[in-house]
C-alpha cells in the first residue's frame, strides 16, 4: 500500500513572502517591487510504500524542508497532487509546541493533543514518555528550568512514544548526550522494525545508511535520483568531491 504519493508536485514561494504591512501591498500595486516567484520544488513525483524507510538527502536549500512541510500537510502544493494516508508525527523542530512557562507534564499533554491524541491515549502513554525521557522529578517543574538537552529529550520522548504511523525525522538524530543519543537511535530502529514508515532528512551518515533502505536526492528543488541508499549516497558524495 502506498502511504505517501506525490505526482508532479510543484511548490513556489514569492520572494517577497513573509510578514506584510499595508504599505507592502501598496508598493506591490504601485509596481515598486516585482513579485518574483521561485520554485522550492519542481515537478517532484515519487511514492512511498507502507513500512519503507526513506532518506531525503541534498544540499542546503535543495527543498528538503519544503518537502517535509508538504508531507506533514502544513502547506498545500502549488500544483500537482499529494496523498498521505496515516497519522504522521514529525520530529521537525523538536518541541515547537512547547511553552517555557508550562511544566513538563503540561507540555506532554499539550503536545500529545496537538499530535492528535485523545485524552485517554495521552494519559495511557504519559508514564512511558516520562520514563523514556529520564527526567524524573523535573517533570513537575516549568520547562524554563530545563537545560537544552533536557528539553530535547522531552520533545523526542513525546514524539517517538506517541506511536506514529509515519515518523518524519529532520536532522535531529543528535539529541542530548551520547548515551541518550544511542537510546534514541535504538528507539527509531525499533519503530522501523515494527513496520512503520520512516521519512528521514539528514546528512549522509553510517547510521542513516543502516536505518534507511532507499534514498531520494533533491537538488535545487528537483528529484535527481531515487534508489537504494548505497547507490544514491555514493553518487551524491561523488558529486560533492568533484565539485570540491
Amino acid at each position: 500500500m502506498k502511504v505517501i504519493e506525490l505526482k508532479n508536485v510543484n511548490k513556489t514561494f514569492h520572494r517577497s513572502g513573509g510578514q506584510k504591512l499595508l504599505r507592502h501591498y501598496l508598493e506591490d500595486i504601485l509596481g515598486k517591487t516585482d513579485p518574483e516567484q521561485f520554485f522550492a520544488l519542481k515537478d517532484v513525483s515519487f511514492s512511498i510504500r507502507d513500512g519503507e524507510s526513506v532518506a531525503v538527502i541534498g544540499a542546503n536549500g535543495a527543498g528538503k524542508s519544503t518537502l517535509l512541510s508538504l508531507v506533514t500537510q502544513l502547506v498545500p502544493p502549488s500544483t500537482g497532487t499529494l496523498d498521505v494516508r496515516g497519522r504522521t508525527a514529525a520530529l521537525l523542530d523538536l518541541g515547537s509546541g512547547f511553552h517555557p512557562d508550562l511544566t513538563g507534564r503540561e507540555n506532554i499533554l499539550l503536545n500529545a493533543s496537538l499530535l492528535g491524541f485523545s485524552r485517554k491515549q495521552a494519559h495511557d502513554l504519559y508514564d512511558s514518555i516520562v520514563e523514556f525521557s529520564e527526567l524524573d522529578d523535573f517533570i513537575k517543574e516549568p520547562l524554563r528550568t530545563y537545560s537544552n538537552g533536557m528539553m530535547l529529550r522531552l520533545a523526542f520522548s513525546v514524539a517517538v512514544n506517541l506511536d506514529p504511523e509515519i515518523l518524519i525525522i529532520d536532522e535531529v538524530l543528535a539529541v542530548g548526550d551520547q548515551k541518550f543519543q544511542a537510546k534514541c537511535t535504538e528507539k527509531i530502529f525499533e519503530i522501523r522494525n515494527q513496520g512503520r514508515t520512516i521519512l528521514c532528512v539528514s546528512h549522509v551518515s553510517p547510521t542513516l545508511q543502516l536505518l534507511c533502505e532507499r534514498a531520494l536526492w533533491l537538488d535545487h528543488g528537483q528529484l535527481v535520483m531515487d534508489g537504494p541508499i548505497g547507490e544514491v549516497a555514493a553518487a551524491y558524495e561523488g558529486r560533492l568531491t568533484r565539485q570540491g
Partner: peptide, 25 residues
Amino acid sequence: MWKGDYLFLLQNLVVKDFKIRYRNM
C-alpha cells in the same frame, strides 16, 4: 488531515493560555 480529539486539544490550549497569563502576575 488532522483527526484528533478536538475537545482535548481545545482544553489544553485554553489551560495553557490561562496558566501563562496568571503565572506571570
